[in-house]
Nucleic acid binder design. Structure first.
Ligand SMILES: [Mn+2]
Ligand SMILES: [Mn+2]
Ligand SMILES: [Zn+2]
Ligand SMILES: [Zn+2]
Lengths: 136, 136
DNA sequence: TATTAAATAGGAGTAATTACTATTTGTCAA
DNA sequence: TTGACAAATAGTAATTACTCCTATTTAATA
Protein backbone atom coordinates (compact mmCIF):
# COMPACT_ATOMS: atom_id res chain seq x y z
CA UNK A 1 0.00 0.00 0.00
CA UNK A 2 2.81 2.37 0.91
CA UNK A 3 4.54 0.86 -2.08
CA UNK A 4 1.67 2.25 -4.15
CA UNK A 5 2.19 5.59 -2.48
CA UNK A 6 5.89 5.84 -3.21
CA UNK A 7 5.33 4.72 -6.76
CA UNK A 8 2.47 7.10 -7.40
CA UNK A 9 4.42 9.94 -5.85
CA UNK A 10 7.41 9.36 -8.08
CA UNK A 11 5.14 9.05 -11.09
CA UNK A 12 3.90 12.55 -10.45
CA UNK A 13 7.13 14.11 -9.20
CA UNK A 14 5.74 14.52 -5.72
CA UNK A 15 8.35 14.50 -2.99
CA UNK A 16 7.89 11.77 -0.43
CA UNK A 17 7.74 13.64 2.86
CA UNK A 18 6.92 12.22 6.28
CA UNK A 19 3.83 14.43 6.40
CA UNK A 20 2.50 13.16 3.10
CA UNK A 21 3.26 9.59 4.04
CA UNK A 22 1.33 9.94 7.31
CA UNK A 23 -1.62 11.61 5.58
CA UNK A 24 -1.78 8.88 2.97
CA UNK A 25 -1.68 6.19 5.62
CA UNK A 26 -4.57 7.80 7.44
CA UNK A 27 -6.55 7.90 4.21
CA UNK A 28 -6.12 4.18 3.58
CA UNK A 29 -7.88 3.41 6.86
CA UNK A 30 -10.21 6.41 6.83
CA UNK A 31 -13.73 6.37 7.97
CA UNK A 32 -16.20 7.54 5.34
CA UNK A 33 -15.39 10.69 3.41
CA UNK A 34 -13.25 12.69 5.82
CA UNK A 35 -12.93 16.45 5.76
CA UNK A 36 -9.56 18.19 5.75
CA UNK A 37 -10.05 18.93 9.42
CA UNK A 38 -10.83 15.25 10.19
CA UNK A 39 -7.51 14.29 8.67
CA UNK A 40 -5.72 17.20 10.33
CA UNK A 41 -6.94 16.21 13.80
CA UNK A 42 -5.79 12.65 13.26
CA UNK A 43 -2.39 13.38 11.79
CA UNK A 44 -1.70 15.88 14.57
CA UNK A 45 -1.40 13.04 17.06
CA UNK A 46 1.68 11.93 15.12
CA UNK A 47 2.91 15.35 13.94
CA UNK A 48 1.84 17.86 16.57
CA UNK A 49 3.27 20.78 14.60
CA UNK A 50 1.78 20.00 11.23
CA UNK A 51 -0.23 22.90 9.87
CA UNK A 52 -3.77 22.69 8.64
CA UNK A 53 -2.65 24.22 5.37
CA UNK A 54 -0.21 21.39 4.77
CA UNK A 55 -2.93 18.82 5.30
CA UNK A 56 -5.42 20.60 3.10
CA UNK A 57 -2.91 21.28 0.35
CA UNK A 58 -1.72 17.70 0.45
CA UNK A 59 -5.25 16.36 0.12
CA UNK A 60 -5.87 18.61 -2.88
CA UNK A 61 -2.59 17.48 -4.39
CA UNK A 62 -3.51 13.83 -3.88
CA UNK A 63 -6.85 14.50 -5.54
CA UNK A 64 -5.17 16.23 -8.46
CA UNK A 65 -3.06 13.18 -9.26
CA UNK A 66 -5.93 10.77 -8.70
CA UNK A 67 -4.86 9.17 -5.44
CA UNK A 68 -8.17 10.24 -3.89
CA UNK A 69 -11.21 12.18 -5.08
CA UNK A 70 -13.07 15.27 -4.02
CA UNK A 71 -16.72 14.45 -3.61
CA UNK A 72 -19.62 16.78 -3.53
CA UNK A 73 -21.27 17.75 -0.28
CA UNK A 74 -24.10 20.21 0.08
CA UNK A 75 -22.19 23.44 0.48
CA UNK A 76 -20.66 22.65 3.82
CA UNK A 77 -17.06 21.69 3.92
CA UNK A 78 -15.19 19.80 1.27
CA UNK A 79 -15.04 16.06 1.67
CA UNK A 80 -12.56 13.57 0.31
CA UNK A 81 -13.10 10.08 -1.04
CA UNK A 82 -10.28 7.64 -0.34
CA UNK A 83 -12.17 4.71 -1.88
CA UNK A 84 -11.46 4.59 -5.59
CA UNK A 85 -13.51 1.45 -6.24
CA UNK A 86 -16.65 2.00 -8.28
CA UNK A 87 -19.47 2.71 -5.88
CA UNK A 88 -22.45 4.96 -5.24
CA UNK A 89 -23.67 7.28 -2.53
CA UNK A 90 -26.67 7.73 -0.33
CA UNK A 91 -26.77 11.31 0.86
CA UNK A 92 -28.79 12.27 3.93
CA UNK A 93 -30.24 15.75 3.54
CA UNK A 94 -30.79 15.87 7.31
CA UNK A 95 -27.33 15.33 8.71
CA UNK A 96 -25.22 15.35 5.56
CA UNK A 97 -23.85 11.87 6.08
CA UNK A 98 -22.75 10.13 2.91
CA UNK A 99 -23.10 6.36 2.89
CA UNK A 100 -21.37 4.18 0.33
CA UNK A 101 -23.21 1.42 -1.43
CA UNK A 102 -22.41 -1.01 -4.18
CA UNK A 103 -24.89 -1.89 -6.92
CA UNK A 104 -23.76 -3.57 -10.11
CA UNK A 105 -26.83 -2.40 -12.03
CA UNK A 106 -25.58 1.17 -11.75
CA UNK A 107 -21.95 0.51 -12.54
CA UNK A 108 -21.95 -0.03 -16.28
CA UNK A 109 -24.74 2.23 -17.43
CA UNK A 110 -23.84 3.96 -20.65
CA UNK A 111 -22.99 7.63 -20.85
CA UNK A 112 -25.47 9.44 -23.09
CA UNK A 113 -24.09 10.33 -26.52
CA UNK A 114 -24.66 14.04 -26.15
CA UNK A 115 -22.57 14.05 -22.98
CA UNK A 116 -19.68 11.87 -24.13
CA UNK A 117 -19.49 13.84 -27.35
CA UNK A 118 -19.42 17.18 -25.63
CA UNK A 119 -17.31 16.49 -22.51
CA UNK A 120 -14.36 14.45 -21.39
CA UNK A 121 -15.93 12.02 -18.92
CA UNK A 122 -13.81 10.60 -16.11
CA UNK A 123 -16.42 8.96 -13.92
CA UNK A 124 -19.99 8.71 -12.85
CA UNK A 125 -21.92 7.96 -9.72
CA UNK A 126 -25.52 7.53 -8.68
CA UNK A 127 -26.42 9.83 -5.82
CA UNK A 128 -29.54 8.90 -3.90
CA UNK A 129 -31.00 11.47 -1.54
CA UNK A 130 -33.20 11.18 1.48
CA UNK A 131 -33.12 10.81 5.22
CA UNK A 132 -30.99 8.35 7.12
CA UNK A 133 -32.32 6.25 10.00
CA UNK A 134 -31.16 8.80 12.56
CA UNK A 135 -32.85 11.70 10.77
CA UNK A 136 -36.24 10.21 9.89
CA UNK B 1 -45.97 30.76 -12.42
CA UNK B 2 -46.45 33.46 -9.80
CA UNK B 3 -49.78 31.76 -9.25
CA UNK B 4 -47.80 28.70 -8.25
CA UNK B 5 -45.74 30.84 -5.92
CA UNK B 6 -48.67 32.39 -4.10
CA UNK B 7 -50.36 29.03 -3.82
CA UNK B 8 -47.27 27.24 -2.56
CA UNK B 9 -46.58 30.03 -0.10
CA UNK B 10 -50.07 29.83 1.39
CA UNK B 11 -49.81 26.05 1.52
CA UNK B 12 -46.80 26.38 3.77
CA UNK B 13 -47.86 29.46 5.73
CA UNK B 14 -45.14 31.58 4.18
CA UNK B 15 -45.94 35.27 3.98
CA UNK B 16 -45.91 36.66 0.48
CA UNK B 17 -43.41 39.50 0.70
CA UNK B 18 -42.09 41.62 -2.16
CA UNK B 19 -38.61 40.29 -1.46
CA UNK B 20 -39.68 36.66 -1.68
CA UNK B 21 -41.69 37.33 -4.80
CA UNK B 22 -38.70 38.93 -6.50
CA UNK B 23 -36.39 36.10 -5.47
CA UNK B 24 -38.80 33.50 -6.77
CA UNK B 25 -39.15 35.32 -10.07
CA UNK B 26 -35.39 35.38 -10.48
CA UNK B 27 -35.26 31.65 -9.80
CA UNK B 28 -37.79 30.85 -12.51
CA UNK B 29 -35.51 32.39 -15.12
CA UNK B 30 -32.25 31.50 -13.43
CA UNK B 31 -29.16 30.42 -15.19
CA UNK B 32 -27.89 27.05 -14.04
CA UNK B 33 -27.66 26.40 -10.32
CA UNK B 34 -27.16 29.86 -8.84
CA UNK B 35 -25.43 30.52 -5.54
CA UNK B 36 -27.03 32.68 -2.86
CA UNK B 37 -24.70 35.48 -3.89
CA UNK B 38 -25.71 35.14 -7.56
CA UNK B 39 -29.33 35.65 -6.57
CA UNK B 40 -28.42 38.43 -4.14
CA UNK B 41 -26.55 40.39 -6.82
CA UNK B 42 -29.50 40.11 -9.18
CA UNK B 43 -32.25 40.95 -6.74
CA UNK B 44 -30.26 43.94 -5.50
CA UNK B 45 -30.92 45.73 -8.79
CA UNK B 46 -34.59 45.75 -7.85
CA UNK B 47 -34.22 45.99 -4.04
CA UNK B 48 -31.00 47.88 -3.35
CA UNK B 49 -31.40 47.51 0.41
CA UNK B 50 -32.14 43.81 0.56
CA UNK B 51 -29.72 42.00 2.82
CA UNK B 52 -27.72 38.95 1.86
CA UNK B 53 -29.13 37.16 4.87
CA UNK B 54 -32.67 37.65 3.63
CA UNK B 55 -31.79 36.17 0.26
CA UNK B 56 -29.94 33.23 1.74
CA UNK B 57 -32.62 32.53 4.33
CA UNK B 58 -35.34 32.77 1.70
CA UNK B 59 -33.56 30.30 -0.56
CA UNK B 60 -33.19 27.86 2.32
CA UNK B 61 -36.86 28.33 3.17
CA UNK B 62 -37.87 27.68 -0.44
CA UNK B 63 -35.73 24.55 -0.39
CA UNK B 64 -37.31 23.39 2.84
CA UNK B 65 -40.82 23.50 1.38
CA UNK B 66 -39.71 21.96 -1.91
CA UNK B 67 -39.95 24.97 -4.20
CA UNK B 68 -36.30 24.50 -5.12
CA UNK B 69 -33.53 22.10 -4.11
CA UNK B 70 -30.08 22.39 -2.63
CA UNK B 71 -27.63 20.54 -4.81
CA UNK B 72 -24.19 19.38 -3.96
CA UNK B 73 -21.11 21.20 -5.14
CA UNK B 74 -17.57 20.18 -4.35
CA UNK B 75 -17.02 22.04 -1.14
CA UNK B 76 -17.29 25.51 -2.53
CA UNK B 77 -20.41 27.45 -1.95
CA UNK B 78 -23.90 26.09 -1.79
CA UNK B 79 -25.81 25.97 -5.02
CA UNK B 80 -29.53 25.92 -5.64
CA UNK B 81 -31.55 24.00 -8.20
CA UNK B 82 -34.64 25.79 -9.48
CA UNK B 83 -35.45 23.03 -11.99
CA UNK B 84 -37.60 20.41 -10.30
CA UNK B 85 -38.02 18.24 -13.40
CA UNK B 86 -36.25 14.90 -13.22
CA UNK B 87 -32.82 15.38 -14.71
CA UNK B 88 -29.15 14.58 -14.24
CA UNK B 89 -25.90 16.47 -13.93
CA UNK B 90 -22.58 16.69 -15.62
CA UNK B 91 -20.06 18.16 -13.20
CA UNK B 92 -16.84 19.72 -14.47
CA UNK B 93 -14.01 19.10 -12.00
CA UNK B 94 -12.06 21.90 -13.65
CA UNK B 95 -14.36 24.90 -13.32
CA UNK B 96 -17.15 23.45 -11.18
CA UNK B 97 -19.85 24.15 -13.72
CA UNK B 98 -22.86 21.87 -13.45
CA UNK B 99 -24.66 21.11 -16.68
CA UNK B 100 -28.16 19.64 -16.77
CA UNK B 101 -29.01 16.77 -19.02
CA UNK B 102 -32.04 14.58 -19.57
CA UNK B 103 -31.79 10.84 -20.11
CA UNK B 104 -34.80 8.58 -19.74
CA UNK B 105 -32.65 5.48 -19.20
CA UNK B 106 -31.48 6.92 -15.92
CA UNK B 107 -34.85 8.18 -14.71
CA UNK B 108 -36.56 4.96 -13.75
CA UNK B 109 -33.70 2.89 -12.40
CA UNK B 110 -34.75 1.06 -9.28
CA UNK B 111 -33.43 1.91 -5.85
CA UNK B 112 -31.50 -1.04 -4.40
CA UNK B 113 -33.39 -2.99 -1.73
CA UNK B 114 -30.79 -2.45 0.98
CA UNK B 115 -31.04 1.32 0.50
CA UNK B 116 -34.82 1.64 0.31
CA UNK B 117 -35.18 -0.63 3.32
CA UNK B 118 -32.69 1.31 5.41
CA UNK B 119 -33.39 4.91 4.38
CA UNK B 120 -36.25 7.18 3.42
CA UNK B 121 -35.44 7.97 -0.21
CA UNK B 122 -36.68 11.25 -1.71
CA UNK B 123 -34.80 11.36 -4.98
CA UNK B 124 -31.89 10.22 -7.05
CA UNK B 125 -29.64 11.64 -9.71
CA UNK B 126 -26.83 10.45 -11.90
CA UNK B 127 -23.77 12.65 -11.55
CA UNK B 128 -21.23 12.36 -14.34
CA UNK B 129 -17.82 13.89 -13.75
CA UNK B 130 -15.16 15.10 -16.09
CA UNK B 131 -13.95 18.18 -17.91
CA UNK B 132 -16.11 20.55 -19.88
CA UNK B 133 -15.15 21.88 -23.31
CA UNK B 134 -13.59 24.99 -21.80
CA UNK B 135 -11.48 23.02 -19.31
CA UNK B 136 -10.13 20.21 -21.50
C1' DT C 1 -58.13 48.95 11.66
C1' DA C 2 -55.70 46.78 15.44
C1' DT C 3 -53.13 42.80 16.81
C1' DT C 4 -49.51 39.76 16.42
C1' DA C 5 -46.32 36.59 14.74
C1' DA C 6 -43.27 36.43 10.91
C1' DA C 7 -39.95 38.66 8.09
C1' DT C 8 -36.44 42.04 7.19
C1' DA C 9 -32.06 45.09 7.28
C1' DG C 10 -27.88 45.82 9.02
C1' DG C 11 -24.24 44.41 11.33
C1' DA C 12 -21.45 41.18 14.12
C1' DG C 13 -19.63 36.64 14.53
C1' DT C 14 -17.97 32.08 12.95
C1' DA C 15 -16.17 28.28 10.17
C1' DA C 16 -13.76 26.73 6.23
C1' DT C 17 -10.55 27.73 3.05
C1' DT C 18 -6.74 30.13 0.77
C1' DA C 19 -2.67 33.24 0.51
C1' DC C 20 1.76 34.73 2.10
C1' DT C 21 6.54 34.19 3.52
C1' DA C 22 10.61 32.74 5.96
C1' DT C 23 12.61 28.40 6.77
C1' DT C 24 13.44 23.56 6.05
C1' DT C 25 13.86 19.40 3.33
C1' DG C 26 13.90 15.80 -0.46
C1' DT C 27 15.99 14.94 -4.78
C1' DC C 28 19.43 14.61 -8.04
C1' DA C 29 23.66 15.51 -10.33
C1' DA C 30 28.41 15.94 -9.71
C1' DT D 1 28.67 11.98 -0.17
C1' DT D 2 27.78 16.42 -0.74
C1' DG D 3 25.91 20.80 -2.42
C1' DA D 4 22.49 23.24 -5.08
C1' DC D 5 17.94 24.15 -5.67
C1' DA D 6 13.17 23.58 -6.36
C1' DA D 7 9.52 21.95 -3.62
C1' DA D 8 7.31 21.54 0.69
C1' DT D 9 6.29 23.09 5.31
C1' DA D 10 4.85 25.87 9.60
C1' DG D 11 2.91 29.69 11.21
C1' DT D 12 0.08 33.29 10.49
C1' DA D 13 -2.87 36.63 8.07
C1' DA D 14 -6.60 37.27 4.94
C1' DT D 15 -10.69 36.00 2.57
C1' DT D 16 -14.99 33.80 1.58
C1' DA D 17 -19.28 31.88 2.55
C1' DC D 18 -22.33 31.49 5.71
C1' DT D 19 -24.94 32.07 10.24
C1' DC D 20 -26.54 34.60 14.27
C1' DC D 21 -28.48 38.63 16.65
C1' DT D 22 -31.73 42.36 17.38
C1' DA D 23 -34.43 46.43 16.63
C1' DT D 24 -37.80 47.59 13.34
C1' DT D 25 -41.20 46.75 9.81
C1' DT D 26 -44.83 44.25 7.62
C1' DA D 27 -48.35 40.68 5.99
C1' DA D 28 -52.16 38.19 7.53
C1' DT D 29 -56.27 37.76 10.26
C1' DA D 30 -60.13 38.86 12.71
MN1 LIG E 1 -17.83 6.96 -1.09
MN1 LIG F 1 -29.79 20.85 -12.51
ZN1 LIG G 1 -29.11 11.82 8.56
ZN1 LIG H 1 -15.05 23.31 -16.84
Amino acid sequence: MMMDFDEKSRQHQLKITPQRTAIFKILTTARNHPTADNVYQEVKTEFPNISFDTVNRTLLTFAEVGMIEVIESNGHCRRFEPNLKTHHHFYCVGCGEITDFFHKEYDNLEIPENISRRFHVTGKRMVIKGLCDKCI
